[in-house]
């Protein structure tokens, strides 16, 4: 194989394929967003970017979406690490715990949202149990766990859906890395907690970093969970885009494109962070 055909096989072909299959739709989408935000296409007005960057409703939406993604990812991560550390071996009880924890993995997000609503809403099952126990007498007395300002319902749904994924990553990392380092530390006098704190957890967190970022960015852009469970004021960022897109008027459409550009910047900066962590891991 001569140098030019090798160059074609190893550089030109993959870049051409990736560019056509992935780059074109992404760039065209972002190009349309920019054009729409600037009022060039799609019956939009100009000046939306400046308007949206100074709109407090947009920044409240950004903060709510960041809160949901951060809290949901952090709680799912803590749960996954606890289960991996306590049930990470290959014994009967451990395997049972791993299988139970993995159950929500294939459940679609919409189904998760429906289930959490039926459990946590003010007329949901927990509220009914509270009524049966005479803790409340009307649904309104049950604390608002969905449509609430802290988005508790969304966060519960995120944890239920994402914990199994992070757990699978943690377990596969544990099985790949083995116990040689832990055994060495224990031989040198480290207590079990010291070995966990200084060896197991840092190694797990380093290996899991790309997956943690992936979960964060998935939650940040999820429409289904906020649509069913989140408060209507402020709206989560994907819902705000959807709301402005559906509203009538050139200004609203341009606003939707400008907000989508803000969401794109958030997602792409996270993608760059993911790529850096992936190459460092």
């Amino acid at each position: 194989m001569n140098a030019s055909s090798r160059h074609a096989r190893t550089v030109v072909v993959p870049l051409l394929m990736a560019g056509t299959l992935l780059g074109v739709p992404i760039l065209v989408s972002i190009g349309y967003l920019v054009a729409g935000a600037l009022g060039w296409v799609g019956n939009t007005s100009s000046g939306a970017v400046g308007r949206m960057l100074t709109d407090t409703a947009v920044w409240r939406s950004v903060m709510l979406s960041l809160w949901i993604a951060t809290a949901g990812t952090a709680i799912a991560l803590i749960g996954a690490l606890m289960i991996a550390l306590l049930f990470g071996r290959d014994r009967r009880l451990d395997r049972l715990a791993q299988r139970v924890a993995a159950l929500p993995l294939p459940v679609p997000t919409v189904a998760t949202a429906v289930a959490v609503l039926l459990l946590l809403s003010q007329s949901g099952w927990l509220s009914r149990v509270a009524a049966q126990m005479h803790l409340i007498t009307t649904p309104a007395q049950f604390p608002a766990l969905v449509y609430d300002p802290w988005a508790i319902g969304v966060i519960v749904a995120v944890v239920w859906k994402e914990l199994p994924f992070l757990l699978l990553v943690a377990l596969s990392l544990q099985s790949l890395r083995g116990s040689a380092l832990i055994d060495a530390a224990r031989t040198l006098g480290a207590t079990p907690w010291q070995a966990t704190r200084t060896i197991t957890l840092p190694l797990l967190l380093r290996g899991m970093a790309p997956s943690i970022v992936a979960v964060f960015v998935f939650v940040l852009g999820s429409l289904e969970l906020p649509l069913v469970l989140a408060p209507s004021s402020p709206l989560a960022l994907p819902m705000l885009i959807q709301e402005r897109r559906q509203a009538l008027g050139a200004d609203s459409h341009a606003d939707a494109y400008a907000i989508a550009l803000i969401a794109t910047a958030l997602a792409l900066s996270t993608a760059l962070l993911h790529e850096k962590l992936r190459s460092d891991a």
């Binding site: 065209v28 989408s29 960015v217 429409l223 994907p238 885009i241 494109y257 969401a263 790529e275």
Partner: peptide, 21 residues
């Protein structure tokens, strides 16, 4: 470069991708 493009396709919020597409 390919991994970055692929992750961008996954990371872009579907609403954002949907509005553009």
């Amino acid at each position: 470069a390919v991994a970055l493009l692929a992750f961008a396709a996954v990371a872009l919020p579907p609403v954002v991708l949907g509005v553009g597409l």
